[in-house]
Design a protein around this nucleic acid. Structure first.
Length: 287
DNA sequence: AAGCCCGCCAACCGCATTCGC
DNA sequence: GGCGAATGCGGTTGGCGGGCT
């Protein structure tokens, strides 16, 4: 493990430390105390000259101060805890990282016996991946939850199903797109509530069936004979978009960033009964 | 058995800050 | 206050070793 050993330009050694080098450093610190690493390096350098004339060149250090300091702090310092990070320590690291970010030395200061380097390595190699997986799992769960919530509501008194919530609304460029996990949408109501004009709002409804339920008008896919809609994931869906068809995988490859701001404004927007919870109708509404 | 891949982690590097003259 | 050296810190590198094919 580690870097290859060998000698650098200026005659300073690099790479893994030998047990003998560790011993020399430990002896030095025992005698002079830690700190003054530049001085340490130089004085051990004098050892080199000394030992050249006293037969044992291998006892000598020729390391730069930074290397000496690092070796002492991360490996030789008394009280260094070796072995696996415990669950308690891991929990503490995660909580501290939430608070202070990548301030490894600060985090290490709260965990006795652990070094900043060790915590940084543990974070980068283990925790980051672990947390990403956890986050992915959570978002998958919340997505499923959202789809569940948006199952077609029961048929209303008027005999139609009513959309209760939009899942995702993407806006920008004067148009808005609503990904609604329901069908048989009262499109004018949706347009009003989504804040688009009567002509610039595209409502996309995932659907099953043969797709012949409509879609000719205003890019909407009304229920029609596709009413046997069931909860499904977006990736399974084919969308009508501006009269053409767009696969979700293609849509996901499009430029999203400019839409996020608008999207945030409209996420979780209630459209049932055209109630506007958080948002006023926009000025450009002409409906 | 050999080769490849990948995670782990010690150590290096560059930059910022502090210290000492 | 200026300057160079020392120290501190976080990001990155790259060799080792174990697992997989």
């Amino acid at each position: 493990m580690g870097r290859n050993s060998g000698f650098e330009k200026e005659g300073l050694k690099k790479g893994m430390w030998s047990a003998r080098e560790d011993q020399v450093l430990q002896n030095y610190v025992k005698k002079h105390g830690p700190g003054k690493w530049g001085k340490t390096a130089r004085e051990t350098g004098k050892f080199l000259i000394f030992f050249i004339f006293t037969f044992d060149i291998q006892q000598c250090l020729k390391r730069c101060g930074k290397s000496v300091r690092l070796r002492w702090l991360n490996y030789l310092r008394p009280g260094i805890k070796k072995g696996n990070i415990t669950e308690d320590e891991e929990d503490l690291i995660i909580r501290m990282h939430k608070l202070v970010g990548n301030r490894w030395s600060l985090i290490a200061g709260r965990i006795p016996g652990r070094t900043d380097n060790e915590i940084k390595n543990y974070w980068n190699s283990t925790l980051r991946k672990k947390l990403a997986e956890q986050k992915e799992k959570e978002s998958e769960m919340s997505r499923n939850e959202m789809i569940k919530e948006n199952l077609p509501s029961p048929v209303g008194d008027d005999g139609n199903q009513h959309l209760t919530k939009c899942d995702v609304v993407v806006g920008g460029g004067g148009g808005l797109m609503c990904f609604a996990s329901n069908v048989n949408v009262e499109e004018d109501h949706q347009r009003r509530c989504l804040g688009g004009t009567s002509t610039d709002t595209t409502i996309l409804s995932p659907r099953v069936g043969d797709g012949t339920g409509g879609g000719a008008n205003n890019n909407i896919e009304p229920a029609g004979d596709d009413l046997n809609y069931n909860a499904m994931t977006w990736n399974d869906s084919i969308m009508d978009l501006n009269g053409g068809q767009l696969y979700m995988s293609e849509f996901l490859q499009t430029e999203f960033s400019k839409f996020w701001e608008e999207t945030d404004r409209f996420l979780n927007f209630e459209v049932g009964g055209c109630s506007t919870i958080n948002h006023e109708l926009p000025n450009n509404w002409d409906g």
